[in-house]
Amino acid sequence: MPINYYIITAIALFCIGITGVLTRRNAIIIFMCIEIMLNAVNLLLVAFSKMFHMAYLADPAKAATSGIDGQLFVFFIMVVAAAEVSVGLAIIVMMYRNTHSVDVNFLNRLKN
């Protein structure tokens, strides 16, 4: 599969995530859109890793391990995303307990 199809798909997913962050006011939906953006980057990293694996397929010294770093980066991104979600949802629950709303426009005290 040509790599530019994967590039366009990942860019489209990332931009849908950006659009969601810009157009929604619910803090949980904004958080979910950030997850979409992380997944777009993960998809692109895996596609690039397979692209480099294919590029070095003829080279016997590199054929076994080329492109493996990209997939390990995706693994570490998933680890960080899981930690981020647990802390972020705890913050949102605390915000809901204090203000009884998940509206991000409520949190504008820095503006005044």
């Binding site: 599969m1 040509p2 790599i3 590039i7 690039f48 692209m51 294919m54 397929l57």
Partner: peptide
Amino acid sequence: KTQAAQLASGDI
């Protein structure tokens, strides 16, 4: 962009 990703094979 001229390169391709390997589908359904490769063992990395």
